[in-house]
Amino acid sequence: MSEEGRFTIHLEQREGFQINAQFGVKRVPDLLMDEPPPLGEQAGPNPSRMLTAAAADCLAASLLYCVFKEEPPDHCLRVEATCIVARNEKKRMRVSGLQIRLIVADVVKEAPRFHRCKDLFEDFCVVSASIRAGIPMQVTVLDQAGTVLHQSS
């Protein structure tokens, strides 16, 4: 990976399992992360929730960019992201799967580029493509009526 593709995020433990994350971007506030009880107090999202949100956001942005480029319409997409956590063969808790559902408004599914983009967008999402190398992931695109418009293979 080239140097231009690198960034550093700084994390600092505050109290208990609360970790403050600094993203190194002026306009982005710090984020407090925490574990759920009994370890922490769930004062913020835990790493599994952050991983799930990162994959979902990346897929949403990738689809919107492919369909509309720089100017997607407001409020045209919702995402439901489910993280499945289970014990592995060593009885350790692991993220064992992600299920991402992108629900698009009519303006998305009727856009001229949608038909082509629905089969391409997953390949351009940096985060989900990287996660998929180690975690099974199912991606589904639906319209607001619940009709499946695309499903990953």
Score class of each variant (00 low, 15 high):
residue 130 S to R: 12
residue 51 L to I: 04
residue 48 S to R: 05
residue 44 G to N: 08
residue 94 R to G: 00
residue 80 E to Q: 11
residue 48 S to P: 03
residue 98 L to H: 02
residue 93 M to P: 00
residue 149 L to V: 05
residue 4 E to C: 02
residue 63 L to G: 05
residue 23 F to I: 09
residue 75 H to L: 10
residue 8 T to D: 10
residue 112 P to H: 08
residue 60 A to Y: 02
residue 98 L to W: 07
residue 55 A to H: 00
residue 20 N to Q: 09
residue 106 D to P: 10
residue 3 E to P: 00
residue 115 H to A: 13
residue 33 M to W: 09
residue 38 P to W: 10
residue 31 L to W: 12
residue 152 S to T: 15
residue 67 V to R: 02
residue 19 I to A: 04
residue 143 D to W: 05
residue 77 L to W: 09
residue 93 M to L: 15
residue 38 P to L: 11
residue 19 I to E: 01
residue 142 L to G: 00
residue 117 C to D: 02
residue 78 R to Y: 05
residue 108 V to N: 07
residue 127 V to H: 09
residue 31 L to D: 00
residue 68 F to D: 01
residue 63 L to Y: 02
residue 150 H to S: 14
residue 152 S to R: 13
residue 92 R to M: 13
residue 76 C to H: 07
residue 108 V to R: 14
residue 122 E to N: 06
residue 131 I to A: 04
residue 116 R to V: 02
residue 140 T to P: 01
residue 96 S to V: 06
residue 2 S to C: 01
residue 143 D to Y: 07
residue 46 N to V: 04
residue 61 A to C: 14
residue 92 R to Q: 11
residue 91 K to H: 08
residue 91 K to S: 08
residue 38 P to A: 10
residue 57 D to Y: 03
residue 90 K to M: 04
residue 148 V to Y: 01
residue 144 Q to K: 15
residue 79 V to H: 03
residue 65 Y to V: 04
residue 54 A to D: 03
residue 149 L to T: 09
residue 49 R to T: 12
residue 82 T to F: 05
residue 56 A to W: 05
residue 52 T to W: 01
residue 26 K to S: 14
residue 14 R to T: 03
residue 63 L to F: 05
residue 65 Y to R: 14
residue 87 R to F: 06
residue 65 Y to C: 01
residue 28 V to H: 10
residue 77 L to F: 07
residue 13 Q to A: 13
residue 14 R to H: 09
residue 119 D to E: 14
residue 71 E to D: 15
residue 142 L to A: 13
residue 34 D to L: 06
residue 16 G to P: 02
residue 48 S to A: 15
residue 61 A to E: 10
residue 46 N to T: 04
residue 99 Q to R: 13
residue 124 F to W: 14
residue 62 S to Q: 08
residue 89 E to S: 15
residue 28 V to G: 01
residue 72 P to E: 10
residue 3 E to F: 06
residue 126 V to Q: 10
residue 7 F to Q: 03
residue 93 M to W: 15
residue 37 P to H: 09
residue 113 R to L: 07
residue 31 L to K: 06
residue 19 I to H: 01
residue 59 L to F: 02
residue 131 I to Y: 04
residue 76 C to M: 06
residue 56 A to K: 00
residue 71 E to H: 14
residue 67 V to I: 08
residue 90 K to S: 07
residue 105 A to S: 10
residue 66 C to F: 08
residue 15 E to D: 11
residue 120 L to R: 10
residue 48 S to Y: 11
residue 149 L to A: 07
residue 35 E to K: 06
residue 8 T to R: 14
residue 25 V to A: 14
residue 1 M to D: 08
residue 67 V to T: 10
residue 99 Q to K: 11
residue 34 D to M: 07
residue 43 A to L: 12
residue 60 A to H: 02
residue 75 H to Q: 15
residue 106 D to I: 01
residue 29 P to N: 14
residue 2 S to G: 14
residue 53 A to S: 13
residue 135 I to A: 03
residue 88 N to A: 06
residue 100 I to S: 03
residue 134 G to P: 03
residue 130 S to D: 07
residue 124 F to S: 13
residue 12 E to F: 00
residue 2 S to W: 06
residue 57 D to G: 15
residue 96 S to D: 10
residue 99 Q to N: 11
residue 116 R to H: 11
residue 24 G to L: 09
residue 10 H to K: 15
residue 122 E to C: 08
residue 51 L to F: 04
residue 40 G to Y: 03
residue 20 N to Y: 01
residue 152 S to N: 12
residue 83 C to I: 15
